[in-house]
Write a protein that binds this DNA or RNA. Sequence first.
DNA 1: GATCCATTTGAAGGGGAATTCAAAAACGCA
DNA 2: TGCGTTTTTGAATTCCCCTTCAAATGGATC
Lengths: 201, 201
Amino acid sequence: MAQRKSRSDRRIDLIEAARRAIIRHGIDGVQLSHVAEEAGLTSGAVLYHYPDLSELLVEAQHAGMERFYEQRLRRLADFTDPVEKLVVTIRSGLPTGPLDPDVRLLNELGGAAGRNRVYGVLLTSLYDRQVSMYQAILDTGAALGVFRLSADSLTIARNLVALEDAYGYRITARHPVIDPAEAAELILSYARAATGNDLSH
Amino acid sequence: MAQRKSRSDRRIDLIEAARRAIIRHGIDGVQLSHVAEEAGLTSGAVLYHYPDLSELLVEAQHAGMERFYEQRLRRLADFTDPVEKLVVTIRSGLPTGPLDPDVRLLNELGGAAGRNRVYGVLLTSLYDRQVSMYQAILDTGAALGVFRLSADSLTIARNLVALEDAYGYRITARHPVIDPAEAAELILSYARAATGNDLSH
DNA sequence: GATCCATTTGAAGGGGAATTCAAAAACGCA
DNA sequence: TGCGTTTTTGAATTCCCCTTCAAATGGATC
């Protein structure tokens, strides 16, 4: 019998297990038994904690998004120079490779968000927060005279997040040429034009 | 009994039916019965033509992609001025709204492409062709002296397609602010900076 | 170490979807 | 009209997954 755990510990385990199961089988292909297997439990045990599988899936997506966003904020906090901040943030928005679990999970939402309002809201809020994150960097750089923005910061920030998203898809789809390094260069090309800064340091 | 049709006619019908079913239920959620219902047939009849549902789904995705791409080329052919070509192409890459079936279908592939090599190849090949399409426009404009490119045309073309992709997701996810018109403006903002042309006419 | 409660198992059921296939229907052609 | 072929149906079968629930297990508490 699997190790017995407290209610809250087990729920955390299950959210993690659901995350892995979604990545493996797709948000519309996950089954109760997949989650159970990932968690090392039986279907009944999963159901004991989450009588409705779809609620667990939403929680898993939510948790994955939060973790992704928090991680970006944390990396960003290590720097003060706007140029460094911008470069680091661009890199932290891209997957480490085709198998990057955080980005794989987010990508699962893309299609589902068009069908499921909850997923749409989740994804939209993540996008908006990431835009704000970039906007703050851009505004600070502009105020310090480091950046000379070619358009308003909101527009540039939206485009930067959009580029990250799109290259995340290309990388997880295993584009033969566009790997994480190449994607970073492509986004930096835009960032240079948009900030009037060559972004080297 | 449903009208009897020739083998090839029925296969075309089924591909269309599968396309609609995928949009409605997701690439991992489609069932044989969904396709049958969309086609006005019974499951048995679908199976008679496509013993393997997954093959039909791949064909549906392939056909949808081809149609999307061909349509873009056709609209592009109506113009000769590089500025007009660029603007029209940017618009033709965006969904008409949250329910746009062509983009909804493509978005379904995003997550699946990370799990399924066939879908990954399909999506990658579409991306590359769209990049070539933009690159031709950019190179022509540069040769005519209309565009003064801020980076090599391949980089700009890749970014333009990436932006389209990403805003397609935002729009189908019903972002409250980013509608097709706003997305076009955002992409145009980048296109202006990248071409050194204000793109008005 | 006995009791109690929360957690987990495993088997049994119910339901729904895929698959198979014989029969029926529609069409082409003589 | 009648015949042969192709396409479609509909029912039977099988398979798989969700759901339920009684029993077992593990840990905490006294």
